[in-house]
Amino acid sequence: MAKTVKNKTTKELKSVIRPNKPKNDKWQLRLYIAGNTAKSITALTNLKKYCEQHLSNRYEIEVIDLLVNPQLAAGDQILAIPTLVRKVPVPVRKIIGDLSNEEKVLVGLDLRPIKK
């Protein structure tokens, strides 16, 4: 039941959004971490997994280690670590945490599973 509802909404959304969003548009994702902490590593592996599943070859992940480049934190208003920032497509979305909840990440990124 819930699935059908979801499918329905995604279908509706697709029809609305599709003209603005060409398929070859690459997703630019930025992951802010601070050193190789357990949380950072979990976040990165989770992110890669979701992207492979839903955005195969249509994504770019840039990992920024704030311990190396602390001045970059202000630009994206980073407070929490790890933070995932979706730069493209706009609007900018941010997801904080180790991305362990797939459902939330996908909703947060406004990412619909294409293989389903």
Binding site: K39, I81, K94, I95, G97, L99
Partner: peptide, 22 residues
């Protein structure tokens, strides 16, 4: 420091290292 609640989703564990680093 500006945090816009509407554009932030929280999933899983995090800390405020970003603030510390800044």
């Amino acid at each position: 420091v500006h945090v816009n609640r509407s554009e932030i989703e929280e999933t899983g564990m995090y800390d405020l290292d970003g603030l510390f680093i800044r």
